[in-house]
Design a protein around this nucleic acid. Structure first.
Lengths: 379, 379
DNA sequence: ATTATTTAATTAAGTAGATTACTTAAATAA
DNA sequence: TTATTTAAGTAATCTACTTAATTAAATAAT
């Protein structure tokens, strides 16, 4: 209630953040075009970009002729202006992704666990990050920050965390500070679904959607909520916990549930959560796959309907570790007119989309995107 | 996407709005205290209040001695600085409320319908408002604006409206403009649940809660959602439609349902929706009342739980036309630990509160509060 | 080929709403 | 009486824009 500066609600430089997001999504744009989408005058963009140019975050491209009038000058992000490390950490594995300043994933690195103590996590990330950065011929100072996503929600605004079952053993540490010490750069920690949502906001094609929800279908089912182009966390960071709407004992439209369901009914089920292995496995068992969809689809529809009734988002992204083919099929149920999950009740149908961010790991990308999103002020 | 001025997201003068809200809720406060709660420096409040003092919106009270140091000077709102008209309109009746600049309801006036055409609404409001203002010895120029609440949601950002069943016959008019012509002041139109939520935000005791939901239990069940001390409307104004989560055919924890339920089981049921009549009637039929609560309580708990899972608000207000005693009893079920609506699933328990705004009609008050909330810039 | 038109971008001056650093004023405590 | 504490105001500055005018670079019309 008592932070100063209500005049800067988008963080420092809301327009700058919007400008950088737009350039990441479009690749290049003129000052006039940026002014248009950011809702400011060309004069403002002129001043803003002069600063960004001198700081080397943005470069001018060629003039683009065509049509009447003066040709515009393309602005682009200087991709080598800085790099963000994204970390998707569970107890069993840690995936590191390196994004350049343009938001492109240029390398990643998988660390296999288990990581029972947070000390193990720290050393693993430290050496993994060193290797990742060195392999690109970069110095450590090239890292402008790191974002770490974990399957957990924050119970306090900062730390400590209320950790999910699988990472409970890490509790009690001041995770962000410790990791920051090790990496020598600022570190942000976020829930995995939230990180994926931020990734879609910053790197994806969400320009048309100021308010959207990102369903994260993985071991369980969670969601990240974006309101007003900003992550909405709710009380102590607990917004979007839609998995709770199926109680403790009911089945869920999750990867875990899919695996268990097949394990009980078929042979040679892929052992882990490898998307490719599952995709071909499901192609070989179309009838069972359909049967599972017939059960999980309506489950997901009810959760998404509840979310829509409360939030009225303009879009819902169907993301998560579930293979794309599964998510695409599940998405069909989110046409509420057809699936009718609540006995003819009506809500505003949101656009149902699959994420644009399809890197190795959307969560790690999103975690890194949190850093890029505030890079204008950090760097 | 293209409105200029991202730098003023709270409307013009977010701090001014916060200042006025605080004075309405507290009655009087020093500049230093205001600076504290508004998150700005005392110097800023000094500048702001000088402006408000010269414009006659605020007056200085006495110095308040006590303790060391210089005694502070109480600031108060000039209650006669302007008046806002609140309108709660349904097809069957229209309630007008007049609020002074301090947010106090100083008079109200009930117009009985039915109002089949919007032309009838206009003439009724016109004469009713004239009478109401004249009875207070005020000129028409004393009205700084009017807010009208209706049981409907907006399908477009402005107009026309997608009207609820009972006011469908009013459709097709440019309601806001027409009413503005008649009354000679700016008019805002809002859904009834949203208006009540805004009333609680502006006039109630919601200072501790930046994010809350206002359950509106009336003929149906709706809700208004406040995020970041601002009404959240969602896509085309459809956020908070939690009634949809009980389908078309299921019973609801609503006033209509209560009335129907008793009508099917007992004699001499009060004919209308008079709160006092119902309160004494329910006191005379405790067993039936308990039986209804046993059914409606869990229903409401499931809706509120869904809302909480998605939004994680820090408070839920249980408001609406249902008599206070009914809402108080229903509120007991919103302790999710006890009522356990989703099979041991856990969410962040929000504070469960009854509205502070208990005027004749919280909706009309809230509608007027929409005007007061932006009065700093209008007046 | 010249001139007009169109459009992009920059510059200059101004504004709103805050800040910081300081002063002035008014009370109580020692 | 003097020191301390606290409230409030003042002056200069800052940020993030605005508006209005200017400069520059292209195409279209004559």
């Amino acid at each position: 209630m008592t932070t100063r500066g209500m005049s800067r609600p988008h963080g420092i430089g809301g327009t700058q953040t919007a400008l950088l997001r737009y350039l990441r999504q479009r690749g290049a744009a003129s000052r006039v075009e940026i002014a248009e989408v950011c809702g400011v005058t060309p004069a403002a963009v002129s001043l803003l970009t002069r600063d960004l140019l001198t700081r080397g975050l943005v470069i001018e491209g060629p003039r683009r002729k065509g049509g009447r009038g003066a040709p515009h000058i393309d602005l682009e992000l200087q991709k080598s202006a800085g790099y963000a490390l994204g970390i998707n950490a569970t107890r069993y594995s840690i995936l590191l992704t390196l994004l350049d300043f343009g938001g492109t994933a240029i390398a990643d690195h998988l660390l296999r666990g288990p990581f029972d103590a947070f000390a193990d996590v720290l050393t693993a990330i430290d050496s993994g990050a060193r290797a990742l950065v060195a392999a690109q011929g970069l110095g450590r100072d090239a890292l402008i920050g790191a974002g770490m996503a974990m399957p957990t929600r924050f119970r306090q605004e900062t730390l400590p965390l209320d950790l999910a079952e699988e990472v409970k053993s890490w509790a009690g540490s001041d995770l962000s500070n410790q990791l920051g010490q090790v990496l020598g750069c600022p570190v942000l920690i976020e829930n995995d679904a939230n990180a994926a949502a931020i990734g879609e906001l910053t790197l994806g094609n969400s320009a048309d959607h100021a308010n959207f929800a990102y369903l994260y279908l993985s071991e369980g089912i969670g969601s990240g909520i974006i309101i007003n182009r900003t992550l909405y966390r709710g009380n102590l960071g607990n917004a979007g916990e839609i998995g709770a709407l199926r109680g403790r004992t009911l089945s869920r439209p999750s990867f875990e549930d899919l695996a268990n369901w097949f394990a009980a009914r078929a042979a040679n089920v892929p052992p882990g959560r490898d998307a490719e292995a599952w995709t071909s496995y499901l192609a070989d068992h179309p009838d069972l796959f359909e049967a599972w969809l017939q059960r999980a689809g309506p489950e997901l529809a009810r959760l998404a309907f509840a979310l829509t009734a409360v939030l009225a988002p303009s879009a819902i992204y169907v993301g998560g570790t579930l293979p794309q083919i599964v998510r695409r099929r599940l998405a069909d149920w989110l046409d509420f007119e057809r699936s009718n999950p609540f006995d003819d009740a009506r809500v505003m149908q949101p656009a149902i989309l699959l994420p644009e961010v399809v890197a190795t790991d959307a969560v790690a990308c999103g975690a890194a995107a949190m850093i890029l999103d505030r890079a204008g002020s950090l760097a």
